[in-house]
Amino acid sequence: MTITGKVALVTGAGQGIGRGIALRLAREGADVALVDIKEDKLVAVAREIATIGRKATVFMADVSLRDSVFAAVNHAERALGGFDIMVNNAGIAQVKPISDVTADELDQIMRINVGGVLWGIQAAARKFLERRQPGKIINASSIAGHDGFALLGVYSATKFAVRALTQAAAREFAADGITVNAYCPGVVGTDMWVEIDKRMSLLTGAGIGETYKKYVGGIALGRAETPEDVAGLVAFLAGPDADYMTGQAPLIDGGLVYR
């Protein structure tokens, strides 16, 4: 069973995990609305989707702004002729001791990681209800949404919050045929982890690459995660085989955190 002919929207689709998810959904048969703040990267991903034989449209949006997220969903429906799947993937990391986090830093990461998911849930649910159809909402959490990690305390808090929003939204929208789930990646070899490693180096004195190597060394399957690994789980959550699954936040980390 596939998602052929469905319309999906992926935030943070210009690179990393978001790009991997967008490409996988296109390979599964979906047309994809690509949302990010970097237009050049969105255009490049759209070209890749075109080579797969699916439609893509791009939309510049800051997910911390509610109106921008609603506009992105409306654009997806107009440009691609429907709306079926919302992937709230966009997010940022923050590496800092809890004692040093400033008010501005807290506000920024909460607005993007939590606010962006909340606005995405709202916008997608409203669109599904307007169209009188079921739908799927899929949110980016993390292994840091199951365990709080040192020097990633506020980031961890945002990812715990995503799990809470996922569970609450699943309960609120179940009667409307809308499922809400999350995915929880581990150590993924993307630009975000390059930055995490650099910040850890500055704070702990570890050499560049040592923190990344340390975490990868704890993975039972013996390698770092790829965006494609994450995208496989998201494709499942987006498809009909996950129709009876809601309010869940499965780990996809190669065996690093166990629940």
Rank of each mutant, 00 (worst) to 15 (best):
A72Q: 08
T57I: 06
R54E: 06
E48R: 05
F59Y: 13
A71S: 15
V63K: 05
E77F: 00
F59C: 06
G81F: 00
K55V: 02
V58H: 03
R78Y: 01
G81V: 09
A44R: 13
D62N: 15
K55Y: 00
E39T: 11
A46W: 03
R47M: 11
A72L: 07
A56F: 00
A50W: 07
R66A: 11
E48I: 07
L65P: 00
F59P: 00
D62E: 13
G82V: 13
A76P: 04
G81E: 13
I52W: 01
V63C: 08
F70I: 11
V45H: 01
D62Y: 09
E77H: 14
D67A: 14
A61G: 07
V58E: 08
D62L: 04
E48F: 00
S68H: 15
R54G: 02
E77S: 14
S64E: 04
A72F: 08
V69Q: 07
V45D: 05
H75N: 12
L80A: 06
D62A: 07
K41N: 10
K55W: 00
A44K: 13
V45I: 10
A46V: 07
A46G: 11
D67I: 06
G81R: 12
L80T: 10
A76Q: 11
D62V: 05
R78M: 12
N74R: 15
H75M: 10
L42F: 06
I49Y: 01
V73L: 11
F59E: 10
A61D: 12
V45N: 05
V69I: 12
R47E: 15
H75R: 12
R66M: 11
G82M: 13
A44P: 12
K41V: 02
T51D: 04
I52G: 01
L42K: 02
M60I: 14
I49N: 02
L42I: 02
H75Q: 10
L80H: 07
I49K: 03
G53F: 06
R66E: 15
R54P: 02
E39C: 11
R47N: 15
D40C: 06
A44G: 11
D40V: 02
V58A: 08
A50C: 04
L80R: 10
A79G: 06
V45M: 06
F59K: 12
T57E: 13
T51L: 00
H75V: 09
E48Q: 13
V43M: 12
G82Q: 13
F59W: 09
A72D: 05
R66G: 08
A76F: 05
E39L: 14
L65E: 12
T51C: 00
V73D: 09
T51R: 06
T51P: 00
A50L: 04
V73T: 10
E39S: 14
G82N: 12
R47W: 05
L80S: 09
M60E: 13
A71N: 13
A71M: 10
V45C: 07
D67P: 02
N74F: 03
G53C: 08
D62T: 08
L65Y: 03
R78W: 00
A79K: 13
A61K: 05
I52A: 01
A72M: 09
A46C: 03
R66D: 12
V63S: 03
E77R: 15
A72C: 09
D62H: 12
A46L: 04
A56P: 02
R78Q: 15
D67L: 11
S64C: 04
